[in-house]
Computed example of a mutant assay.
Amino acid sequence: MMLHRRLLHKSLRALFDSRVCATTRVEILDWLLSPKDCSNAFSYHACCALFGLDSEVIRDRVLERYRRRDPR
């Protein structure tokens, strides 16, 4: 469970970290946009479900913030 929490937290923070390369950000976005029926134990949806979080609400808020970010 600690690994799931760390993956979720670290991935969402890295998405907005200007020091993170574009390739890594694309990988995080792919993970975030993965299908809900993905059977991977470490999928974005599985990580959210473990903590009782609504993955779609969080994803929508994160993507909205990502679209508005300052690219500098």
Rank of each mutant, 00 (worst) to 15 (best):
E64V: 08
D30H: 09
R67V: 07
F16L: 04
A46Y: 09
S55G: 14
L7C: 10
R19G: 13
R72E: 00
C38T: 11
E27H: 13
W31E: 07
C48Q: 09
V62C: 01
E56M: 10
R19C: 02
L29V: 15
N40S: 11
L12C: 02
Y66N: 00
E56P: 07
C38G: 05
K10L: 07
E27N: 10
Y66G: 03
R72Q: 08
R67S: 04
L3W: 10
I28F: 02
M1D: 14
M1S: 11
V57M: 13
R59E: 11
D70Y: 08
A49W: 11
H45W: 13
P35L: 00
E64T: 13
L12N: 01
E56A: 02
E64S: 09
V62D: 03
V62T: 12
T23W: 07
P71H: 05
L63G: 02
R61T: 06
L7H: 14
V26Y: 04
R19E: 13
E64G: 01
E27V: 05
D17R: 01
L15F: 01
F51C: 00
D60E: 13
R13M: 01
I28M: 00
H9S: 06
R61V: 05
R13F: 05
C21S: 01
R5K: 11
V20Q: 06
H45N: 14
L63R: 11
T24A: 06
L12T: 05
C48V: 13
F51T: 13
H45K: 12
Y66I: 00
D37C: 08
R69E: 04
L50E: 11
E64I: 02
A41T: 13
S11W: 07
T24G: 01
S55C: 15
R67E: 05
R68F: 03
V57Y: 15
D60L: 03
R25Q: 13
M1T: 11
E56L: 12
V62I: 15
F16H: 03
Y44V: 01
R59A: 07
F51K: 02
F16I: 00
S39A: 05
S34C: 10
E56I: 14
A22N: 07
K36S: 12
L29Q: 04
L50I: 09
A46M: 13
S18Q: 04
L29W: 05
I58E: 15
R59P: 07
E64R: 07
K36I: 12
C48S: 09
S18P: 13
D37R: 12
D60Y: 03
H4T: 12
A49D: 15
R67A: 03
R69Y: 09
V20H: 02
E27W: 10
F16A: 00
K36E: 15
G52V: 09
R69H: 04
N40V: 06
C21E: 15
R19D: 09
S39Q: 11
L63E: 07
R69S: 01
D70Q: 05
T24S: 02
R59Q: 12
L29F: 00
C21A: 07
D30S: 08
R5M: 05
F51V: 09
D54T: 13
T23N: 08
L32C: 06
A22C: 00
H45L: 02
S55F: 15
D37W: 14
A22R: 08
R72V: 06
C48T: 13
L8P: 09
H9T: 12
H45G: 06
L3T: 15
R5S: 09
D37I: 11
N40M: 08
S34K: 01
C38H: 14
I28S: 02
F42E: 05
